[in-house]
Design a protein around this nucleic acid. Structure first.
Length: 417
RNA sequence: GUGGGUAUAGUCAAGUGGUUAAGACAGCGGGUUGUGGUUCCGCCAUGCAUGGGUUCGAACCCCAUUACCCACCCCA
């Protein structure tokens, strides 16, 4: 047990951390182009924030949160990124700033679920949020950023699906219409759909059971019951996506599992990484700030699962360059040479080079072998001959060429390609 | 929470009741102390997830436990 990480967690080892650096840098760069600034919030919050933000009746709040009591406070490890950012926005009165405000983040999230492919208990998300505009142009930009990032990562075969889940008014009207439609066929639905009838009837529409699919054919669709404002907003969004030349499909089955969503809902989905194929999901949340006790500030954003992103890149055969290997390895023979080697190693490191020496007292042949296997670009050889002449031999490990330079010229010699 | 699968070295594995548990890759050492990627030689599981049981005898059969994987629910 002591030598096992907890269920649903994963170590990111030095042999793969370069992939994380790659996607993290790329995401920060895309966000910079879109004018987003990074925000960092704590890894835990007051439990109440998520109860109010994500919603008391959601699965996340009801059974997936890591919650504990301390000093008479109930605290919870962040299960998602949006609520904390909205909290920070309200707390620091950032609504007093020039609007809109655009944030991005790279955070660990925690949910107590049964792990499977693409799902961990401790996982990581990139996310962005735009506050202060209800213009669909913002939604289109948010989707565009996600799309550009996914493309830049070399991923193919990911589909953008969009939907509108309306505002609280048109959604509650629609729920009643849908329940009226489902009532006569309730007894024929599968067991999970029966339980969905009260909790989330919209889910029944994309049940995987073929029998249920037949039954719900011809069911009323949310899109047809949007109020005028929501309907116009959805049309605006589609127009803007088309204007930006971003392909999408309208999927009335998209129902986000977090209560705060309004109007726009979207997902980027792949079928190459197993059942958990939603790499990125997001939408608009116009009432969240108010729900948390802040002013009525509209918002829109997304969360993007980093583990799922990496899985998808892998499935797509994307190769990320692994920048490993020292600039130079110093091979030495004898104690005098070792001392000169250590002196030069330090000098070169201070000059900015990645330099290594053998510290297992290997013979020359094995020092070379080590230099080769760890990917050193050059090997610097120091023995009795070199010490006598105050020179070193530099061998290029790719071409195999060797040359001799004076000890004092070693930095310049390494700068040459 | 429900269901299914797997567990032999750092990794991939053969072995499915009978003497010292194949093999490959990786690692380490060496081929007469000055040169790697090739080649050759040597070393590397009294041990088969853990704990019981059956048996003259168990990696192999039985029971329990644990871990990991996959799927449902739901989500990133």
């Amino acid at each position: 047990m002591l030598t096992n990480a907890p269920k649903g967690t994963k170590d990111i080892l030095p042999s793969e951390v370069y992939k994380w650096h790659y996607v993290e840098n790329a995401f920060a760069e895309i966000c910079r182009r879109y004018g987003f600034k990074e925000i960092r919030t704590p890894d835990f919050e007051h439990t109440e924030l998520f109860k109010r933000g994500v919603g008391d009746t959601t699965d996340i709040v009801q059974k997936e949160m890591y919650t504990w009591e301390q000093a008479k406070r109930s605290l919870t490890l962040r299960p998602e990124g949006t609520s904390p950012v909205v909290r920070a926005f309200v707390e620091h009165k950032l609504y007093a700033d020039v609007q809109p405000l655009k944030f991005y983040y790279n955070i660990p999230c925690f949910r107590y679920e049964k792990p499977q492919s693409g799902r961990l208990r401790a996982f990581h998300q990139f996310g962005i949020e735009v506050f202060g505009t209800d213009n669909m142009m913002a939604d289109a930009e948010v989707i565009s950023l996600a799309s550009d990032f996914i493309d830049a990562m070399g991923i193919t075969g990911v589909e953008l699906r969009i939907n509108s889940i309306g505002c609280p008014e048109c959604r509650s009207k629609y729920r009643e219409v849908l329940k009226d439609f489902l009532r006569p066929i309730y007894d024929q639905l599968c067991d999970t759909c029966k339980s969905r009838y009260e909790t989330n009837p919209m889910r029944i529409l994309d049940c995987k059971s073929p029998e249920d699919q037949k039954l719900v054919k011809g069911a009323p669709k949310m899109i047809d019951y949007l109020c005028d404002e929501c309907s116009k907003a959805f049309d605006d969004l589609k127009d803007d996506l088309t204007a930006m030349e971003i392909d999408y499909t309208v999927d009335p089955g998209i129902v986000r599992g977090l209560d705060y969503y309004t109007k726009t809902a979207f997902e980027f989905v792949t079928d190459s990484i197993g059942a958990q194929g939603t790499v990125c999901g997001g939408g608009r949340y116009d009432d969240l700030s108010e729900e948390l006790g802040g002013p009525p500030i509209p918002g829109v954003g997304f969360g993007l699962g980093i583990e799922r992103l990496l899985l998808t890149m892998d499935a797509c055969g994307v190769e990320i360059e692994n920048p490993y290997g020292a600039d130079a390895f110093i091979a030495v023979m004898g104690d005098e040479a070792r001392k000169l080697g250590m002196k030069l190693m330090r000098k070169l490191r201070l000059a900015g080079f990645n330099v290594e020496m053998d510290d297992l007292a290997r013979n020359v042949k094995n020092q070379f072998k080590y230099a080769d296997r760890t990917g050193a670009g050059k090997t610097i050889v120091i023995g009795d001959d070199e010490i006598e002449k105050q020179e070193v031999t530099i061998k290029d490990m790719i071409s195999g060429e060797q040359k001799t330079v004076a000890v004092d010229d070693i930095i310049d010699a390494l700068k040459e390609k």
